[in-house]
Structure formats: structure tokens, C-alpha cells
């Protein structure tokens, strides 16, 4: 379990390294997909299967479709793929610096955190996170209202921002 968890954590950092090292947006989106998938794995190993499910749905179902659409909008003449020189150099620099930092903190790491809360009742029907999310219907109802109101507000915001006046590159003829 410990070994697999280390691999997953390493995968999260690697995904973010790919996003941060300034490739073309396609590859950055790919890195984000990898990071989101690995994040789901981490959450499952910690016993948060419901939160993992939500993350998986939101990231891989919703956000990446939108990002693919926008990557098509922002087409590039020559790509900075993961193997190209500047991107590879940046990735190397980031990887080495994260490794050095991890080495610096290595003595202070302790293993108690590997024991997760839900580890000993894998077969239980109720999981803690699902029960916690269900709390949002009654005691946390105000937060639900705020979040719903913000999503509605975002709809207005987006509509106002992309509303076409007759100027600019894209316009109705």
C-alpha cells in the first residue's frame, strides 16, 4: 500500500510538472488529466470514494471538454511538445528542484499518515465522505445556496463577457 501510494503521489507531482513547464495547451491539458486521474487514485486509497467520484466526473467529464474546445480556438503554428528543448529543460529543472526539496524534508517525514481513517472498515456501507456531503442538505444548506447562487451568477457573468458587439475578429455578418 505504501509503495503504491508513493507512486500515486509522484504521479500527481509529475502531472503538475507537465502543466507548469509551458508546453502547448494540448499537452498541458493532458498533464492535467493525468494529475486529476492520479488525484482520484489518491482519494480512493484514502477512503474517499465519493469525493473521488465527484472529482472524476467534474474534471474528466466537464472541464476537459471545455478545455479541448478552447485549445481548438487557440491553435498554434508550431507546437511545443513535451520533447522539445525548452519544455524538457524546464521539466528537468522543476523535477530536480522538487527532488531536492523532498530530500531536504525527508528526515522529517513520518509514516503514521499512511494509516487512513477508513482503512479498517473497507466493507462498511456508510462512508464518511458521502455522509459528510449529505450534510450539505440540512445543516450546510446555506453553503449549498451560496454555491448555487454563485453558479447562477457565473452564468450571467459569462453571458455578459462573451456577448458579441459588432467589433473584433468574430462577429455576425
Amino acid at each position: 500500500m505504501s509503495f503504491f501510494m508513493s507512486l500515486l503521489l509522484l504521479g500527481l507531482v509529475l502531472g503538475l510538472i507537465v502543466v507548469a513547464s509551458n508546453p502547448s495547451p494540448y499537452f498541458a491539458a493532458l498533464g492535467l488529466v493525468v494529475a486529476a486521474g492520479v488525484g482520484c487514485g489518491i482519494l480512493v486509497w484514502h477512503g474517499g470514494s465519493f469525493l473521488c467520484f465527484i472529482l472524476f466526473l467534474i474534471y474528466l467529464g466537464g472541464m476537459l471538454v471545455v478545455f479541448a474546445y478552447c485549445a481548438a480556438l487557440a491553435a498554434d503554428s508550431h507546437w511545443e511538445s513535451l520533447g522539445s528543448q525548452s519544455v524538457a529543460a524546464t521539466m528537468l529543472v522543476y523535477g530536480v528542484s522538487v527532488g531536492v526539496l523532498a530530500g531536504g524534508f525527508y528526515g522529517g517525514w513520518y509514516e503514521s499518515s499512511w494509516l487512513t481513517v477508513e482503512e479498517f472498515h473497507e466493507l462498511a456501507v456508510h462512508r464518511g465522505d458521502a455522509a459528510g456531503v449529505a450534510l450539505m442538505y440540512m445543516p450546510g444548506g446555506k453553503m449549498l445556496m451560496i454555491a448555487a447562487w454563485t453558479l447562477l451568477l457565473t452564468l450571467f457573468v459569462v453571458m455578459e463577457l462573451v456577448r458579441g458587439k459588432n467589433r473584433g475578429a468574430l462577429r455576425s455578418i
Binding site: 482519494l43 474517499g48 469525493l51 472529482l55 477508513e118 465522505d129 459528510g132 456531503v133 450539505m136 450546510g140
Partner: peptide, 15 residues
């Protein structure tokens, strides 16, 4: 945030 809620088994925070 999710791992904080899961590791401390803080059920009310997991929303």
C-alpha cells in the same frame, strides 16, 4: 482539502 477531511475523519468538513 479532501485528504484533510479524510485523515482527520472530519465528516462535516468533507462537503
Amino acid at each position: 482539502l479532501s485528504l484533510w477531511a479524510l485523515q482527520l475523519s472530519s465528516i462535516s468538513f468533507s462537503a
